[in-house]
Simulated scan of single mutants.
Amino acid sequence: MNGDALEVLVVDDDYRVASVHVAFVEGVPGFRVVGQAHTAADALELAQKLHPDLVLLDIYLPDGDGLEVVRGMLNTPSPPAVMVISAATDMATVRRAVQLGAVHYIVKPFGFAALAERLTAFRNAQLHITEWPDEPTQDDVNKIFDLLRPSTPAQVSAELRHLAPTLKLVYDALSSSDVALSAADIAASIGISRATAQRYLTQLEQGNAVTLELRYGQTGRPEHRYTVRRR
């Protein structure tokens, strides 16, 4: 662990998706993003240069297989922990991820809560490791693996309160509304520009935290309105 915050490298071939994941990570206490990579080559280079504690790793990369990236990272002197984030659900891919030591496997698309609970579990396990006794028992070993399990629903709900500041304002405005809101509604409610509100709403929607509704009028383009995805 480097200082108080665990350092994270985010790897995803889609720049927009990567930005959503960055916002999610930085919304969880005890974590900070130190870099982004969008190719397998960049992921390996940045992992060796930045020495992150954790890598959020997509499998489908334009120049290679993300799991081969994991294999390459394991050959470095201080390999990071890896959390796989992928749309792949076939057993062969999941099995390889497990065999390579992935601490978690999150299926896309996912919301903030799904990532927050796993990041929190990972951090708790890392903190326990730093307090490892001189003569560990089986109970000490069991504790590490127990801590890696996702949090309870109540804990997940609590993590939603720790979104990055502006993202949190947008999310909270939606949460407190009984009706679907537009970007203009959000902008007026919390005092930001419509463009800024739309950017954060798009991030939340891409991250599966909110639901987009298209409302068609008699003329013109459909109006985009958003509601919080209830869990």
Rank of each mutant, 00 (worst) to 15 (best):
V8W: 03
V10E: 00
V10N: 01
R16M: 13
V17N: 00
V20E: 01
A23I: 04
V25K: 03
G27E: 04
G27Q: 07
V28K: 07
P29D: 14
F31R: 05
R32Y: 01
V34A: 09
A37I: 13
A37C: 12
H38Q: 11
H38R: 12
T39S: 15
A41L: 12
H51N: 13
L54W: 05
L54F: 04
V55G: 00
D58K: 11
I59L: 15
L61M: 12
P62Q: 11
P62T: 11
D65V: 11
L67I: 10
V69G: 03
V70S: 03
G72M: 03
A81H: 10
V84I: 15
D90Q: 13
A92R: 15
V94E: 05
R95P: 00
V98P: 01
V107L: 12
F110S: 12
F112Q: 02
A116F: 05
F122Q: 04
F122L: 08
I129W: 11
T130E: 15
P133A: 12
D139W: 00
D140I: 11
V141H: 09
K143P: 01
I144F: 14
D146N: 10
D146L: 08
L148I: 06
S151W: 00
Q155N: 10
V156M: 12
H162K: 09
H162A: 07
P165C: 09
T166I: 13
K168N: 14
K168M: 11
V170D: 06
A173Y: 00
A173D: 01
S176F: 05
D178G: 15
D178N: 13
A180I: 06
A180C: 03
L181R: 03
A183K: 01
I186K: 02
A187S: 14
I190S: 04
R194K: 14
R194L: 02
A197R: 01
Q198Y: 09
Y200A: 01
L204R: 03
A209P: 00
T211S: 06
L212K: 12
Y216A: 08
G217I: 07
Q218R: 11
Q218H: 07
R221Q: 05
E223N: 05
H224W: 03
R225V: 14
R231M: 11
